[in-house]
């Protein structure tokens, strides 16, 4: 099967700071790939290049067969409807209710859905994360774990083929972190999604990963399953598993 994401020779720098330097990665259908790396090495920059929020300096970022940097505004918008993005900070619109937050991705001008269908989609997405009762609440009234689930529900509302998770368990207690990790596994099973998960929470990594890519000095330093990398003698890889 054709890979859903192909990243080739990706380079991105901010001024003199080289963040991604000839980075390569392939994600296959229904595969969960974890990108592991220390804070500030450019993991979030990588997924922002994939979704088109940042423009790479050079290299290819092919998503579902389309090279993201080459896409025009409308093409990029249509591609983004197939790619969900869970932000590290959840990025819930705090002036809107949970319902309005979930309806927001459906505002695209080329999507025509009746209000009944919108209501059904919102309810389904909320039921998937077990929070249907919060539909009319404001994000500030919810706990950190609930906000993360609502953000995940918003990501799921258009049933994306690919989901990019930016540190999904950061800032959560271990129990809630495990619940979110389990949810990520269930979503893949239910919707057959492919995912890139940015994380350095090793409990989450163990639970959700099919494959792990270790990002060091802007390059994909090592790749393998949790077990393969766990037994690696490479100093850069080993430090995450100690």
């Amino acid at each position: 099967m054709e890979p859903v994401i192909v990243i080739e020779h990706l380079c991105k720098r901010f001024g003199p700071n080289i963040v991604l330097d000839d980075f390569n990665l392939v994600v296959r259908p229904e595969e969960n790939v974890v990108v592991l790396g220390k804070s500030g090495v450019g993991k979030s920059v990588l997924i922002k290049c994939i979704i088109g929020l940042l423009r790479p300096d050079s290299g290819r970022v092919s998503v579902l067969g389309q090279n993201v940097p080459d896409l025009g505004h409308d093409e990029l918008d249509r591609l983004r409807a197939k790619v969900g993005f869970l932000f590290q900070s959840n990025a819930l619109y705090d002036s809107m209710t949970v319902r309005k937050n979930l309806e927001f991705p459906l505002r695209r001008h080329w999507i025509e859905i009746s209000q009944d269908k919108v209501d059904a989609m919102v309810m389904e997405a909320l039921e998937n994360v077990g929070l249907a009762h919060t539909i009319d609440e404001m994000p500030e009234e919810l706990s950190g774990g609930m906000r993360k689930r609502i953000a995940l529900a918003r990501t799921l509302i258009l049933k994306p083929e690919i989901i990019l998770y930016d540190e999904p368990t950061t800032g959560l207690d271990p129990v809630t972190g495990k619940e979110i990790s389990t949810l990520i596994v269930e979503i893949r099973k239910k919707y057959h999604t492919s995912s890139i998960i940015i994380s350095h929470d090793m409990h989450c990594v163990k639970l959700v990963s099919d494959r792990i890519a270790v990002l060091v000095n802007g390059k994909c330093h090592a790749q393998g399953t949790y077990e393969e990398l766990g037994s690696s003698t490479d100093r850069e890889v080993k430090q995450f598993f100690e």
Binding site: K48, L53, D77, A91
Partner: peptide, 16 residues
């Protein structure tokens, strides 16, 4: 505050 909490990026990703 919307910028630093990535709400503006989320809006862009959401097609608005």
């Amino acid at each position: 505050s919307m910028r630093v909490t990535e709400q503006i990026d989320a809006m862009e990703v959401s097609g608005t």
